[in-house]
Amino acid sequence: MNVLSLNIRGLGNSSKADWVRGLRIHHEVSFMMIQETQFVDLGSIDVGRFWGRGDFCFDWVASDGRSGGLLSLWDPKIFAKTDVTKLSNCLLVSGNIKGCDGANHMLNVYAPHNAVDKRFLWAEISNLIGGGDGLWTVAGDFNAVRRECERRNSFFNTSEANEFNDFIDNSNLHEFSLKGRRFTFVAGDKLSGIDRIFVNWNFFMKWPNAEYVALGRKMSDHSPLVLKTTSRNFGPKPFRFYNSWLRRDDFGDVVKNSICGGGFMGDPDCILMQKFKKLRVNISIWADQCKQKELGEKQLLEKERGELDDILEVRQLSEVEMWTLEEAKQCLWELESLHQQDLKQKSRC
């Protein structure tokens, strides 16, 4: 299940909804955690615009005036909610992920700025994690950094960083290596890495190769974070043979040269596989070259036909010009016929 975390800095802008919806669709996100909604009541907000098409569920924590506010959205076909816990600075949605044994806990966090309040929040989160087994994902804006290098042109508080690191260690949380941007928040020339996604040891062991990426800032001064545990890469695309290739004059030579080129060694079955592999590569290269060649030929023929049509508007064509026009039309028809044959075959696959 892929997870998105974003400090949106207010839900009111409709362009932000379009942006978040695009991120969700593009990265195939099934659970979203949004911080700093800045809304006490979501009655006036069309939450569905942030999700897009398909069923979704959501829960939220009201902001304190124009400060804070949390919103979590998820796909009920992927994540089945069993319980919700709401605190002033965090929103815990517990449930089960389809195809994953055991409980899953999704904790959405927006930490306060005050050091004492943060200390109390770290204790609350530690108690929540200590009281629940299963997989934990803790994401949000923590308003704290772990190392001095995570701040630029801004004050680094050593004691706050130590308390933050102690909380992470005591809660048995882990952070994947961040890809993309190094700093997740920027204000003028001040940069910080305060937005994060942590997981517990059980999660880390289940998906050790999960991808953790900071995306580009667009409608917020915070970078969206995406934790990808689901891979949609099914390997190389299957090789598809188009019947129209048999109508090309040079296709037979490509096949013959690929098979009879030599250089194959091993048992007969290994040699056969090597020949198929070489044949596939050579046909793919030939098909790309053929496509580019026919595209260029089509453009020249259309230009030539257009010029002759313009001449025909003012005078009769000569015999040579008439033959050229008919030849151009015939060649264009043949190219279009090949293209239509490919489209017809695709539609039946």
Rank of each mutant, 00 (worst) to 15 (best):
R247H: 08
W74V: 01
F183G: 06
W60M: 05
W323D: 12
F39P: 02
E304R: 14
K179Q: 14
K77N: 14
A62L: 00
W136P: 04
G134D: 03
G95L: 02
F203C: 13
W286M: 02
N172L: 10
A62D: 08
I259C: 10
I194Q: 03
E124G: 01
I45Q: 05
L11E: 04
K118W: 02
S347A: 14
D55N: 13
D59P: 03
S337F: 08
A115D: 12
G266T: 05
M1E: 08
F31E: 00
C331H: 10
V255M: 09
K190Y: 01
S177G: 13
D141Q: 03
N282C: 07
K329Y: 05
A115Q: 11
Q289D: 13
G52V: 08
E297W: 08
L335P: 01
G10V: 05
K303I: 11
K237F: 07
T137R: 06
D166E: 14
V109H: 00
I311S: 06
S30G: 15
G296Y: 09
R152K: 15
S88Q: 12
C349Q: 12
N257Q: 12
I197M: 07
S337V: 06
R53H: 10
A328V: 02
G12W: 08
G188V: 10
N127V: 06
T37D: 06
E148T: 08
R181L: 15
F79K: 01
I78V: 15
T137I: 15
V20F: 00
L300H: 10
D75M: 03
L225W: 07
W245C: 02
R247E: 12
I125H: 03
V314R: 12
T184M: 07
P224G: 06
S94Q: 14
H105S: 07
E28Q: 07
V254T: 05
I25M: 06
G134E: 01
